[in-house]
């Protein structure tokens, strides 16, 4: 079985590859190539020894160690009437998949990468299997493990040929990457944009939540925007980040992009404190990979307690207020 890993990072290329490689190991591929349509600098990229070669996009065309004779030509007829970045990548990958006879593509999920991967699946006539968190053996068969029914269920679907797997892995491969793989270049197809113009505005950094070592999350029980502001200040002092549940964000207590849970960010911090959330499965999907999970809720029967390492029965906004006071006093003490 021929496998291709597709990573679309804007930064942290190695981390992306590690996420994918951890899953690829479970697939026992005969051959595995790595596709990097948008990586800007792959010249010195170290990869696991199981990667046979790398296909890179146009920005790396000048890479010094490009494998001789392997600058493939983009065929004519690529141009279509629609498509932005995602469709360019999809066409680029389609070309590679056909050229190399790839059976399974394993891509990383993300706004643009998921769209590319889904478009790729359509172009190839493959099935899109998305939301894969792990590869598990089920009846001896490697299966894509996914969440279903708002994270109440794990769903296992056999991994077969002609699938594009779109992964949101929770684990990261930590072994050594000590090989260099030959790099081959395929220029991006020239595709007209499918919009008239695009403006880009910055927004608060949701990505800092995903990478935070300490995460503080406010649910409906924090009762208002004031407590969320405090959470952000506390998180700042402790070197962490603050997010909120979808319910709290809908109430307008904090921005939507800081929503933690199935419909937002899935974090895996060393420690996570959840204030005033009941523990609905769809929310827990965002915090359950925390190494240490601490719940603060005034309802002793809140289901979140049984899903946490530590439980504290308390009124969330008051506890947050006191916490901030303690930390301010500590600051003053140090100053």
């Amino acid at each position: 079985m021929k496998l291709a890993l597709a990573a679309f990072p804007s930064a942290h290329l190695e981390k992306s590859i590690r996420r994918l490689w951890g899953l690829a190991l479970g697939l026992n591929a005969d051959k595995c190539s790595l596709w990097l349509p948008s990586a800007s600098d792959v010249g010195n990229l170290r990869v696991p020894s199981g990667i046979s070669h790398i296909w890179a996009g146009p920005e790396t065309a000048s890479a010094a160690n490009c494998e001789a004779g392997f600058v493939a030509n983009c065929e004519a007829g690529f141009a279509t009437n629609c498509g932005g970045f995602a469709i360019k990548c999809a066409i680029w990958m389609e070309h590679l998949a056909k050229m190399e006879g790839v059976d399974i593509v394993l891509a990383e999920s993300g706004a643009a990468s998921s769209e590319s991967a889904i478009r790729l699946s359509y172009r190839l006539g493959f099935s899109a299997v998305s939301g894969l968190v792990d590869v598990s053996l089920f009846n001896g068969m490697p299966c894509a493990k996914m969440r279903a029914a708002s994270s109440h269920l794990d769903l296992f679907r056999p991994i077969e040929k002609n699938q594009v797997l779109i992964a949101r892995p929770s684990k990261i491969y930590s072994g050594n990457f000590d090989s260099f793989a030959p790099i081959r270049i395929l220029p991006m197809p020239d595709v007209e944009a499918d919009f008239i113009e695009e403006r880009i505005l910055p927004r608060s950094k949701a990505s800092s939540l995903e990478d935070a070592q300490l995460l503080l999350v406010g649910g409906r029980g924090i009762k208002g925007p004031a407590a969320f502001k405090r959470l952000q200040e506390i998180a700042g002092k402790l070197g962490g980040a603050a997010g909120l549940t979808r319910a709290a964000a809908i109430n307008g207590w904090g921005p939507m992009e800081l929503v933690v849970g199935q419909s937002g960010i899935a974090a895996s911090p060393k420690a996570c404190v959840v204030f005033g959330a009941s523990g609905a499965a769809a929310f827990m999907a965002g915090v359950e990979d925390s190494e240490r999970l601490i719940a603060v809720n005034n309802d002793p029967d809140a289901p979140i307690f049984s899903k946490s390492d530590y439980g504290i029965i308390a009124d969330a906004p008051s506890a947050i207020e006191r916490l901030e006071e303690i930390l301010s006093d500590a600051d003053k003490g140090c100053g």
Binding site: R220, K223, A247, I250, N251, S278, D299
Partner: peptide
């Protein structure tokens, strides 16, 4: 009881 003052209707 858990949804009082969550302003679901207000919204």
């Amino acid at each position: 009881c858990g949804r009082l003052d969550h302003f679901d209707y207000y919204k």
